[in-house]
Design a protein around this nucleic acid. Structure first.
Length: 876
RNA sequence: GGGCUCUUAGCUCAGCUGGUUCAGAGCACCUGCCUUACAAGCAGGGGGUCACUGGUUCGAACCCAGUAGGGCCCACCA
């Protein structure tokens, strides 16, 4: 046989991928067929493939390939995200390595570097997806900063501004002093850190009294503008209306009252620093306090920091604590664990900071998106449990801060023409802006050079929330053929970690800009974790190299490995052993193919066993097909795979092929051969979404096929009839076969030695399957008897008793013991059934169907006991 | 602190919303086999008080309450 006995994925994967591409199988254009669309969650343009990508892209490919086989016009749109802060951080770091600080570059120079970087590394990840077998329509590849993608973002912003949904606000935001930008709440990660609680003494103006205040951030006292006590706190009532003096800077600040203050915490007395704490800001607004910002944008102190000006906040914390101590203001310190917000990207400690930002009002926008998921189910989440989290977030949604103090991204199209709060206009182009500005300012002589564009860019998600629309250019040309045909898309596959960042906002955008849902189903995958349940991450070094895995196990093996244990929404505990299982499965199929391929076909009559086996497998196939469809409809991809796995490995390879297989070097009859090939092809179709490379290879090997006959573009099997009698008959026969094999094993009788089989047929089982039993167990003849056979080994299936005469003595005692054990069990079982049936309340209350079943159980058990007792008697 | 959710075999999970597909699957494990498709394999086998405690019911892995221990989301105390 010239086909290697081991499947060698490396040999064929690139070949078939190129073949599919050359024939344009993944490319879609609108036509008369029903569309099936997936838009890829765009990975960061400079990213590399990690296990999370592998998992969710495999799932997407399974769905898209299945849809393609089902005759739909399948379109999977790939692309990448500019990921403003992540990419900018990388570029800054790279430039820093080269000795170029960002501060020395102009915006244009920096952007040149960033684009260079993007072109160099961008799209690496897309090439990696090809290795995995992803059947994306690469002609449609998009990048969130492509010209028309950016133009879409700008247009949407202007539109929302004109609708009155955008405003500028002086707000407390999460400031990343490292990246010198704002972060959204979602980009802040809270960490528990051991810190100190400093007890500071403030003098009361015009008295000898002091008040002690606890704080974790002594450096912020320079920004204090009030002290706050709880009006219900008797300890401080006498301070009402007095003033305190801030140590070191000696500012005189009012003592105010507010129930916000927790009497139990610290000393029950709070220093208020409106510029550097969200809650203090609220207090400040409420009580009309002054705001003193003591930080520069890199979180070093400004001139309000007095002699600490220019020093970093953490340095100042230590130094000021020392000074306070020396001057007698520091009463004591205590250890204290507090939660510190850190930047997801730069890990820097977040500084709450007041600044001018752009906001999008969300409450109104969110309404249709809430309805769609929670009321009308126009958009369905899988698994459903995420609807609760979704509800919670959406019903408490806050306005979205969409500006970022970065350069990499779409620059906000707001143009300032003066220094007043309202001296700006918003427009898609400079020309339009100029027109508007002339009108608004009443100054017709304004020129473009008088306009100053806002320096900030949009939050990345402000471009990706349009993704399902903008990839089809549906914002700029709302009625183009593509958007009308492909939108709404069908399924979205992504991780639950970006449910709010992305999924919820896409739903919002879908209704706002298209008045339609962006997709129907959202499949939320789990996170990929390692064996110790740790999240896979580069920093932990526990994430395997995706490409190496593919090299080691084959793309199909890795795909199967990933899917085998990843029910929707459950975390996937990744273990390379799973890929090994996938690889083994691929090899199994490969060898089944080798077997069939090696058969010599001849014009012989079809053996009865083969006919029966083939009919049985057809039924089994159809029944499993229905199960698989059911699993797919519920997005239970791993169950669909497992059903396929068992069908192919157990039913097809272990049973059918063994039934049909001709004796050594004997030819096979033509009819059986053709049937087996047809059934094999059916298997390949079921397998193809999971294992595209292997199945295409075998498919093409089996017959010479024209390109349009490729498996990738063939047709998913149609539902067929299921003969339950055949399946039941086979199941019974397989138990008989297992019984015979067990006897052989226990008695060490080699397969080569022929056996004879007799049976007491109490079940009234048909003799049809005798031919199959004979073939698979090397039984020469099966005879039907009326009484137990002496000196034979026996076993039972249901109420049938089977006898195998053997040469040499049968150990009667062992046989008796076995029968007695069975008797004991079945009698116990009968008792429990009888107990139920003699319970009047059971008989009166249980449904008739259940009672009938119990009666059948009783009858079966009694019959079996009779059989057992007879054979016991025959052994006496 | 608020909300959601989970606990079934050594591991990862099913168990379709009380009753023979009720105790399952895959992997792992054990025992035989290099049987001419496949040792990446074949055949056979062992293994679970369904977290715990009560309750409802003729009947509970499944429903209710409580306990213990995980996980997720949101908010966040200076």
């Amino acid at each position: 046989m010239d086909i290697p006995s081991k499947y060698e994925p490396q040999r064929i994967e690139d070949h078939w991928y190129a073949y599919w591409m050359d024939n344009g199988f993944f490319h879609s254009v609108p036509d008369h067929r029903e569309s099936y669309t997936i838009v890829i969650p765009p990975p960061n343009v400079t990213g590399v493939l990690h296990m999370g990508h592998m998992l969710n892209n495999t799932i997407q490919d399974v769905l898209i390939r299945k849809a393609r086989l089902m005759g739909k016009n399948a379109c999977w749109v790939p692309g990448t995200d500019h990921a403003s802060i992540a990419t900018e951080a990388k570029v800054v770091a790279k430039l820093k390595e080269e000795g170029i600080p960002k501060s020395e570059l102009s915006r244009e120079q920096f952007l040149n570097y960033a684009w260079e970087w993007t072109h160099e590394y961008g799209g690496v990840i897309l090439e990696q997806l090809k290795k995995l077998g992803c059947s994306c329509d690469w002609d449609r590849t998009k990048f969130t900063m492509d010209d028309n993608m950016s133009a879409s973002v700008i247009k949407v912003f202007v539109d929302l501004f004109n609708k009155g949904l955008i405003y500028r606000g002086y707000r407390m935001v999460n400031w990343d002093p490292e990246a010198k930008t704002t972060l959204s709440d979602e980009e802040v990660i809270y960490e528990e850190r051991q810190g100190l609680l400093y007890y500071l003494s403030y003098a009361i103006e015009g008295s000898d009294e002091n008040v002690i205040i606890a704080t974790t951030r002594p450096e912020t006292i320079l920004g204090d503008t009030a002290i706050c006590i709880n009006p219900n706190d008797g300890r401080y009532r006498h301070l009402k209306g007095k003033k305190a003096i801030v140590p070191i800077c000696n500012r005189v600040i009012p003592i105010i009252e507010d129930e916000y203050v927790d009497i139990e915490f610290g000393t029950g007395c709070l220093k208020v620093t409106p510029a550097h704490d969200v809650n203090d800001k609220a207090l400040g607004d409420k009580h009309g306090l002054e705001t003193v910002d003591i930080f520069n944008e890199d979180a070093s102190l400004n001139s309000y920091g007095l002699h600490y000006a220019g020093k970093d906040r953490f340095v100042v914390r230590k130094e000021i604590a020392r000074e306070l101590d020396e001057k007698g203001f520091l009463v004591k310190t205590e250890k204290h664990i507090n939660k510190v917000g850190t930047s997801e990207r730069t890990k820097a400690v977040i500084e709450p900071r007041l600044s001018e930002q752009w906001f999008l009002k969300m409450e109104e926008l969110a309404r249709p998106a809430i309805e769609a998921v929670l009321e009308t189910s126009e958009v369905k989440l899988f698994p459903k449990k995420f609807e609760n989290t979704y509800r919670h977030w959406m019903e408490n949604i806050r306005d979205w801060n969409i500006s970022r103090q970065l350069w990499w991204g779409q620059q906000i199209p707001a143009f300032y023409f003066g220094d007043g709060q309202e001296d700006f206009v918003v427009a898609e182009t400079g020309e339009e802006a100029l027109n508007l500005a002339r009108k608004k300012s009443g100054n017709p002589s304004l020129t473009l050079t008088d306009l100053r564009q806002d320096a900030d860019v949009f939050d990345t998600w402000f471009s990706s929330w349009l993704w399902p629309i903008s990839v089809f250019n549906g914002i700029l040309e709302p009625e183009n053929e593509d958007i009308e045909y492909y939108y709404p898309t069908n399924d979205l596959i992504t991780g639950p970690d970006i449910l709010f960042f992305w999924v919820a906002r896409m739903i919002i955008a879908g209704y706002e800009f298209r008045d339609k849902r962006p997709f129907e189903n959202v499949y939320l995958t789990g996170l990929v974790r390692d064996g110790q349940r740790r999240k896979m991450s580069k920093s932990l070094g526990n994430s395997p190299d995706a490409l190496k895995l593919i090299a080691d196990y084959g793309a199909d093996g890795v795909r199967v490995g990933l899917l085998l244990s990843s029910p929707a929404g459950n975390d996937l505990l990744f273990d390379e052993a799973l890929c090994q299982q996938g690889k083994n499965f691929a090899n199994k199929i490969w060898n089944a193919f080798r077997l069939v391929q090696g058969w010599e076909v001849s014009d012989l009559p079809q053996p009865e066993a083969s006919r029966l086996g083939i009919d049985w497998y057809s039924s089994k196939f159809n029944r499993t097909l229905a199960e698989i469809e059911d699993h797919f409809s519920k997005y239970r991809i791993s169950d669909a795979l497992m059903a396929t796995y068992k069908l192919v490995w157990d039913d097809f390879c272990s049973w059918l092929l063994e039934i049909v297989k001709p004796a050594y070097q004997q030819p096979i009859d033509k009819k059986s051969f053709e049937s087996v090939i047809r059934l094999f092809e059916g298997n390949l179709k079921l397998l193809h979404p999971f294992m595209p490379f292997l199945t295409e290879e075998i498919w093409q090997h089996m017959k010479n096929r024209a390109p349009e006959e490729a498996l990738t573009v063939s047709q998913w099997p149609k539902e067929g009839s299921v003969d339950e009698n055949l399946i039941a008959g086979f199941t019974f026969a397989s138990e008989v076969i297992a019984g015979i094999r067990t006897v052989r094993k226990e008695k060490n009788i080699p397969m080569k030695e022929e056996l004879e089989l007799s049976l007491l047929n109490e079940e009234g089982v048909s003799k049809d399957w005798d031919v199959v039993i004979k073939k698979l167990t090397n039984v020469s003849q099966i005879s039907y008897v009326n009484a137990a056979v002496d000196g034979a080994l026996s076993f039972r299936v249901k109420s049938n008793e089977y006898f195998i005469p053997i040469t040499g003595a049968v150990d009667v005692e062992v046989e008796k013991q076995k029968i007695n054990e069975e008797l004991k069990y079945i009698k116990g079982f009968l008792m429990s059934v009888q107990k139920k049936l003699s319970n009047d309340r059971f008989v009166n209350n249980a449904p008739a169907k259940v009672i009938e079943l119990e009666r059948k159980k009783q009858a079966d058990a009694e019959a079996k006991i009779e059989t057992l007792e007879k054979s016991l008697a025959s052994l006496e």
